[in-house]
């Protein structure tokens, strides 16, 4: 895929109103995410993940798309990528059911904007009738809650995004 084709694709996706498009071809994969919800910003984030070519003798097409891909990575929105990477995730240490509240009629342990310290309880995960209060390992501010209350979680699944203090 040529660089101008990628640019056209980005324009097309941003006009279409969808928030994410993932395209996977034989030797590369491109993901375009638009920030539709944030009204003031209309830029797109482009993550290009290059797949390993299937053949030992890469063709001209592969070489070209690799070049295009690396260019695409460095061009548009490194700012946002850097911005996200400073956040830390709190992950689920186990399989179970995620609860944001200590009891159905109580307030959530944390909300977006809550300050947490090492040891602050952020949620409960129930597994096979055992109840687990999950504590934050670091200090910071909750930026995003990534899982809905009362839903199943997998081992290592990200639960919260935290802006470290």
């Amino acid at each position: 895929m040529k660089i101008n084709e990628i640019q056209d694709l980005i324009k097309f996706v941003s006009k279409s109103g969808v928030s994410e498009v993932e395209l996977e071809m034989k030797d590369f994969k491109i993901t375009i995410k638009t920030s539709q919800n944030e009204k003031q910003r209309t830029e797109q984030t482009v993550f290009v993940q290059q797949a390993i070519p299937a053949t030992t003798n890469p063709s001209a097409i592969t070489a070209q798309s690799t070049a295009a891909a690396s260019q695409a990575v460095s061009t548009p929105t490194t700012a946002e990528v850097a911005n996200n990477s400073k956040y830390i995730t709190i992950k689920s240490p186990m399989i179970g059911t995620f609860y944001r509240k200590p009891a159905p009629d109580k307030a959530p342990f944390v909300e977006v904007g809550s300050d947490v310290k090492k040891g602050t309880v952020v949620c409960v995960i129930e597994a096979m009738k055992l109840f687990n209060e999950i504590e934050s390992e670091f200090s910071g501010k909750i930026v995003k809650v990534l899982v809905d209350d009362n839903s199943p979680v997998e081992y290592d699944q990200p639960l919260f995004l935290v802006d470290p203090a």
Binding site: K129, L130, F131, N132, I134, E137
Partner: peptide, 11 residues
């Protein structure tokens, strides 16, 4: 039996 744990990290 009712068991309630506190977990820090993976432990």
């Amino acid at each position: 039996i009712l068991i309630e744990n506190n977990i820090l990290g993976n432990k």
